[in-house]
């Protein structure tokens, strides 16, 4: 397997250039992003860290085409998101992007399996059955497939969400505090799944977190403060991430 090599040769999966986001007007104006330049390598697991209110979620929303940036550009692969209308943007999300949110990831009326297949069905695509089986077994949901979200624990629900994101083989998965609501054991499970999918399936993942332990699962951590990218770490450990954070907040 030469996925690691591939990661360095392939063009980046997502690139943001001079990205700014301004909320409100006049006195209430908030500069959530102030000219962010960042690239996320294909086949890599990147974490975005920073203190609360630093703009992590805003950055992720703009990168994923969920929200429009005030200025600057975002490319996913060769497509410039910032130039797309809502319809094309929706299509792009449907075809190239996967999501794992902190909570409320699943439709309560659908079973786990239906939730997992939902993006494919919205896109009228056929599921890749070997991939489906592999993902289901990896996340250990085989005997939970016919359950509805209300019958699953928080950790199981997040596993369903991860499986759903993986099943459509998106160009990039965005995860916003995917372990924020979980106990540490379930959280660790989810993070291992994410890392495994990067290693074994070559999946590109961008994860927002404020937890140094979570960030340490990533290949690389970028740090935000007051809407600006201030520093980054390669091959992070919980301790190195924590140190960097402490330095930032000082």
């Amino acid at each position: 397997m030469t996925l690691t090599d591939n990661r360095h040769q392939a063009p980046p999966a997502v690139v943001a250039t001079d990205l700014t986001k301004v909320y409100g007007q006049g006195d209430a104006v908030v500069h959530a992003l102030r000219g962010v330049n960042v690239a996320f390598a294909t086949g890599a697991f990147t974490a975005i860290m920073g203190p609360s209110g630093s703009g992590k979620s805003t950055l992720m929303h703009c990168l994923a085409g969920l929200d429009a940036a005030t200025s600057g550009t975002v490319h996913v692969g060769d497509v410039e998101l910032t130039a797309l209308d809502d319809r094309r943007l929706t299509r792009l999300r449907r075809e190239r992007i996967g999501f794992v949110f902190q909570s409320f990831n699943l439709l309560p009326t659908l079973t786990a399996e239906q939730n997992i297949r939902l993006p494919l069905e919205i896109a009228s695509r056929q599921a890749d059955q070997p991939l489906f089986d592999r993902v289901i077994d990896t996340v250990g949901l085989r005997n939970r497939l016919s359950h509805r979200p209300a019958e699953l624990s928080g950790g199981q629900q997040q596993r369903v969400a991860v499986a759903r994101a993986l099943i459509s083989k998106p160009q990039v998965i965005f995860a916003d505090e995917p372990t924020g609501n979980l106990d540490s054991r379930s959280g660790a499970e989810i993070l291992s799944f994410l890392r495994t999918s990067v290693r074994e399936l070559g999946q590109t993942i961008v994860m927002v977190t404020h937890d140094p332990v979570a960030a340490s699962y990533a290949d690389r951590v970028v740090f935000l403060r007051d809407g600006e990218l201030v520093t980054e770490l390669a091959t992070p450990t919980p301790q190195s991430v924590l140190d960097t954070l402490v330095k930032l907040e000082a």
């Binding site: 319809r87 999300r93 949110f101 990831n105 439709l107 919205i122």
Partner: peptide
């Protein structure tokens, strides 16, 4: 509201 937002995020168009 959140359900609709989730569906939109997953690629459901406004029209859909």
């Amino acid at each position: 509201t959140r359900e609709s937002a989730l569906l939109r995020a997953l690629g459901l168009t406004r029209r859909q």
